[in-house]
Amino acid sequence: MPDYYAPTGGHPPQTQLLTDRAVFTEAYAVIPKGTMRDIVTSFLPFWTLTRLWVLSRPLSGFAETFSQYIMEVQPGGGSQTPETDPEAQGVLFVVSGTMTLSIEGTNHEMAEGGYAYLPAGCDWQLENTGNEPVRFHWVRKAYEAVPGLDAPEPFVTNEKRVAPKVMPGTDGKWATTRFVEPEDLRHDMHVNIVTFEPGAVIPFAETHVMEHGLYVLEGKAVYRLNQDWVEVEAGDYMWLRAFCPQACYAGGPGRFRYLLYKDVNRHMKLR
């Protein structure tokens, strides 16, 4: 049974040491879970009883294609006008609590592990109809339409209903839960879940054009970012610009899992 980490805010005592793992470099950033306090929350127009932590945003010269939030909606809260940008597509992933998502007039009940893809221009609303706060990731990207390709449809599922795909040659120790097939060229972003069993590794320094947002859902590991090895754990966020080398060693004792964003399936912009 997955055990996703979700921030709850609060404020550290004056006695806490200032030393922390937060770092921002020209190639990557690490935003530890301890930085997600009340003082750094934001609010959005047309959302009630809601606050959010902004994990990443388009930043010139760094990662430019997406934003990622952790939303916290109290009982009775939500929005009838959640997305104000008609060109923005989105993915929602629930890490705690329950909520009702309405897409084109059809209601979907979502709980932990719930996943929704919302294409640009989609008519959707969201409400926390439960008795506890609901916390979910919201990944947004401007959709890059291609003449001759239909736009993708909205869909709602849960990671429990999606069989992970095992990486060849890893004896099942490295797997990816893919919510969209890589060959579906209508999609220009993927938001997947990557799972490493204890002892599993990414055995080379991946260096590629895709930008990444990696939110650690479970466990801990040592992650290679550019030339540095960094310890990360559940609740931490890693933000990688294009071509930042990365690798991973999952030392255990439990599984290491993260929610992964990457931009895919489009020509590189030349102007």
Rank of each mutant, 00 (worst) to 15 (best):
E26I: 09
A27D: 13
A29Y: 03
A29P: 06
V30R: 02
V30Q: 06
P32Q: 04
P32T: 03
K33E: 14
K33M: 12
G34D: 14
G34S: 11
G34H: 07
M36S: 02
M36V: 03
D38P: 03
D38C: 01
D38E: 10
D38L: 00
D38H: 02
D38S: 05
D38V: 01
V40M: 04
V40H: 05
V40C: 05
V40K: 02
T41I: 03
S42T: 02
F43V: 09
F43R: 03
L44W: 05
L44M: 05
T48C: 11
T48I: 05
T48H: 13
T50G: 05
T50E: 13
R51M: 01
R51T: 00
W53T: 00
W53R: 00
L55C: 08
L55N: 06
S56Y: 13
R57A: 04
L59M: 15
S60C: 12
F62L: 08
F62I: 04
A63H: 06
A63I: 02
A63G: 09
E64P: 03
T65I: 07
T65F: 12
T65S: 14
S67D: 11
Q68P: 13
Q68N: 15
Q68S: 15
Y69T: 01
Y69E: 06
Y69D: 08
I70F: 01
M71T: 00
P75W: 13
P75L: 05
G76I: 04
G77W: 10
G78I: 01
G78E: 12
S79K: 07
S79T: 14
Q80Y: 15
T81Y: 15
T81A: 15
P82A: 15
T84W: 15
D85V: 08
D85L: 08
P86I: 07
P86D: 10
A88V: 11
Q89M: 09
Q89A: 07
G90M: 07
G90S: 12
G90E: 09
G90H: 07
V91N: 08
V91C: 13
L92R: 05
L92V: 09
L92H: 10
F93Y: 15
F93G: 12
F93Q: 13
V94T: 13
V94G: 07
V95H: 08
S96K: 14
G97L: 09
G97W: 09
G97Y: 10
G97V: 10
T98C: 10
T100I: 10
T100C: 12
L101G: 10
I103F: 15
I103W: 09
E104Y: 13
E104F: 12
E104P: 13
E104K: 06
G105Y: 10
N107G: 11
N107F: 14
H108C: 04
M110S: 04
M110C: 08
A111G: 14
A111M: 12
A111S: 13
E112R: 00
E112G: 02
G114P: 00
Y115D: 10
A116H: 03
A116Q: 01
L118D: 01
P119K: 01
P119D: 01
P119T: 00
A120M: 04
A120Q: 02
G121W: 02
G121A: 01
G121P: 03
C122V: 11
C122D: 14
C122A: 08
D123F: 04
W124Y: 12
W124V: 00
Q125V: 04
